[in-house]
Structure formats: structure tokens, C-alpha cells
Amino acid sequence: MKLPLRLLLLVGCCLILFSCAGNDDVKPQMQSPVRLSAVTTDGLWVADHLANRVFLLDRQSLEIRDSFPVGPRPAGVVVASGRVFVAEQNAGRVSVYNLSGTPLFRLGQGDNEFLRPNGMALNAASGLVYIADLKAGKIRVFTLNGTDAGFAIGSGELNAPTAVTFDPDRREILVSDFGVPDAPQVRVYAEDGTFLRSLPGTVSSGMLGVTSIFSAPQGLTVDGKGHLFLVDSLLGQVLVLDELTGELLKTVGRTGTGNGELFLPLDVTIDPGSGDLLVANSKPARIEVYRQGGVMP
């Protein structure tokens, strides 16, 4: 083979090798962060609905530390006992992975155990995980080893539950429900499924009919001091409500796509160490941080 041809071949091989090495460095990026785990010492786990992955973000910098692929259209994500529970909406299942992304098992029968699994919450003290099944209109309850706990919450009462959280201090389960038409609400249940109270999204306001507090309730969390932090995806805000009465105390964020603005936010969590409020800002594909936003006077 002639020298120029050899050189050309060599250059070609180098280019191919170089481009391959470059591809290895391309880390998956978030496309549509929808649900957040509780903040742990490991960091924050984020379910990405369009990337079909879960991401682990550094607790301080929120830089992506790790990620692994999961089933189609992930929704809720919960971390317990070194395992990551992921609701895989389009497969109608919740899969359980180890922290490296190795699949371990699935809740119940696996595929199609749920009609449309959405948000999830952990009751660590009782070893239970709650799954909002939007289409079934109830909260399913499973043990951490994947077996059905034998009862559901809100059957026949919930219309379209999107998200759920557990208040470990009050031992209550709070559910975001789009509700029957024009009646969005947060419904509160005891651990055994007994209905306790409703925090309505609309309240009567005399001659003008009703006043809307929230319209499209999604992810929610509590601060342990009687405050409920609720994301409204339509308003593009986090609403801080009195956990007992539902009174609107404060709003965080505003709709938009700029820094600090929310467009189709879907979940919220509080870093218990810093008091920072973290919001899954799905359309701009980022986690919004409100410093001390989770601290109420």
C-alpha cells in the first residue's frame, strides 16, 4: 500500500476513534423532570418522563452525579433501603432498582399491576410505599418487598389522584386530586385509609360564586410544622397552605420560563438540612431552587 494511502487510512482511523471517545463522554441530560424523591444524604433522585431515566443530583450543587435508564414514561420515584422505586407509567408498573440501576423486582404482578401509576410516597416507619393510580382513582399500598399490603386508600372517593405524600409526624396521607369537575382538592387520610378531611381548591365567595385557590394540584410535601407545600402546574406556583385548614399562606415562584419562574412544575420537596425548596420545573427541564423557600416563620 502506498504511503499517502496508508496515512489517509491512519488519519481516518484516528478520527473514528476520537469521535467514539467523545461520545462516551456525553452524559444524558434532563429533558422533563417530573417527580422528586425526598432529599437524602446521597442527593436528590429525579424521574425524567421523556428521557426515560432517573437522575441522581448532588445535594449541594444539584449537578448530575449519576443516572440510569428505566421503563417507559417514569413518574413517581421513591428511595428506601438502598433501593429506587420508579413508577413506569406506560407499562403500568412500579419497578425496583438498586442504586446502580440494576433491576431487582417489580411490585405485585409487574406489568399492568396499575392502570396509570403516578406519584409515590414512602412511609418509612411502617415499611410501606404509596402509589397514586390516577386511572383507578385510588392510592395503592405495597410493602417495601413488593407485596400488596391488602388495602387501598380513597377507593370510590378520589377522582384523579396525581400525587401523594406522607406526613410522618401526623401519620397522615395527603393526596392531590384533580377532583370531580371544578373541585380540585387535597384529601387527607389516616394510615388505615380512614378519610380525615379535605382541603378544597375552590371556596365559596358570595355573589361572585367561587374563588379558586388551586386548579391543577400535583406534587406535594409537608414541613413537619403544619405547612403543606403544593405544586399547581397550571398556576406555575408552589402554594403554601395550612395543613389543617387549607388556608393559603404564601406562594412561591411565578409562571414563566426565566430563572426562578415555573412552567408546568410537577413536584416539590424540601431539603431538611438547608430549608431550600426544590421544584421539578418540567418544561424548562431543570430543578428550581428557592433558598430557604421551605422555611416558614
Partner: peptide, 26 residues
């Protein structure tokens, strides 16, 4: 009495209105 300004929708809030139900996890 709306909590939002979506009584009359602009482009941004129209999009949010559609996606609140038809977007991810709606």
C-alpha cells in the same frame, strides 16, 4: 375569582392550560 389570570388566556397561559391536563403526569 380565579387564583390565576387565566380568565382571558395569553399564549403562555394557554399552553399551560392545555399541558396541565395533557402534559406529562396530567
Amino acid at each position: 375569582g380565579s387564583a390565576s389570570d387565566t380568565g382571558l388566556l395569553d399564549e403562555l397561559s394557554t399552553e399551560a392550560t392545555c399541558l396541565a391536563c395533557h402534559g406529562p403526569l396530567g
